[in-house]
């Protein structure tokens, strides 16, 4: 009997979400098939890649990064270079320095940085906070106001601060809200329910389902993303049809394989190569599981993942 290929069709789709405005706007999501299953049907918009820069500059970065950003001394100057990185679809400003337990940069200062970065680029902008819930809520409100009309995505609203972030970012200033749940599928759905009950439109929400560097519990990330896509497409669950955006750089570059010095582990080879490999492996795995966008930082990772996306779309 000849083989008959049966495409897996769903009567549902992931929401398409546009970031930025005008000619350089970028749209993520829109798939009505499982991740990258272009042989089954419409994968919507091919996965997009964000390039992450930090308000702390290049502190502790490897040579490949310092060379790429050579001559850039401010976040705005870095952003201008980041958007020119081959493969970049959007720029992500991570406001690490705002952390009250770290540099504790003031909200006003962060707003100025965000405005300068937004002014220096034409690609869409994503703002990542410092992971302190109260500070992020304050930061996001002020930055959302300062960048009104630029259609910026904020990462992220969490269970603890979703009300203030949702109300400011999503309702008052009509920006895009990232809903962050750390590899907790029930919470992922719950946050979307809470944000929509607050009045944020489902199409203005993206999910950051959390991640882990490859080898550090990634199987939980994989099963979470699988279940989310199965519910979104197979069960037409509107509360899980938001596109998924995954910050990969911060995870991949903070594990032992990416951090330890070559002098301590000579058999592992150069540190920078290891970091890039971790970043590529994690990003590729996230895209295969269902991320509609990943956020990376190393030029080699961005180039590699961009080539992968181009080959698969």
């Amino acid at each position: 009997m000849p083989f008959k290929r049966t495409p897996q069709k769903f009567n549902a789709a992931i929401n398409a979400m546009t970031l930025g405005t005008g000619d350089n706007a970028v749209t993520i999501g829109g798939a009505s098939v499982l991740p990258l299953y272009s042989f089954d049907g419409d994968i919507g918009n091919a996965p997009k890649i964000g390039v992450e820069i930090s308000d702390l500059g290049l502190e502790g970065e490897c040579v490949g990064m310092t060379e790429f950003y050579a001559g850039a001394s401010t976040p705005a100057e870095m952003a201008a270079k980041a958007e020119k990185m081959p493969g970049a679809d959007f720029v992500c400003l991570r406001l690490e320095g705002a952390d009250p337990n770290g540099h504790n940069r003031s909200v006003e200062e962060c707003v100025e940085i965000a405005k300068a970065v937004a002014g220096a680029i034409s690609l869409p902008l994503v703002i990542e906070g410092c992971k302190n819930n109260e500070k992020d809520a304050e930061l996001f409100e002020k930055i959302a106001a300062a960048l009104e009309g630029k259609n910026v995505l904020f990462l992220s609203a969490k269970e603890e601060n979703h009300k203030s972030v949702g109300a400011a970012v999503g309702l008052a200033y009509a920006q895009k809200v990232g809903a962050e749940s750390s590899v907790d599928i029930n919470l992922a759905k719950q946050l979307n329910v809470l944000l929509t009950q607050l009045g944020v439109k489902a199409e203005n929400i993206a999910m950051n389902l959390g991640s882990a560097a490859a080898g550090y519990g990634f199987e939980y990330v994989a099963s979470t993303m699988d279940r989310v896509k199965a519910a979104a497409l197979g069960q037409n669950d509107a509360m899980l049809q938001m596109p998924v955006i995954t910050p990969v750089a911060s995870e991949a570059w903070s594990v032992k394989e990416a951090m330890v010095d070559e002098a301590d582990f000579p058999e592992w080879g150069p540190q920078e190569d290891r970091g890039v490999r971790m970043e590529i492996a994690t990003a590729a795995a996230c895209l295969a599981c269902g991320s509609d966008a990943v956020i990376l930082k190393h030029p080699r990772s961005v180039a590699t993942i961009s080539a992968m996306v181009a080959a698969l779309k």
Partner: peptide
């Protein structure tokens, strides 16, 4: 397992 659980499952 027809529907994914969320705390607000009764209100959606």
């Amino acid at each position: 397992n027809n529907v994914l659980y969320a705390d607000s499952y009764l209100s959606i």
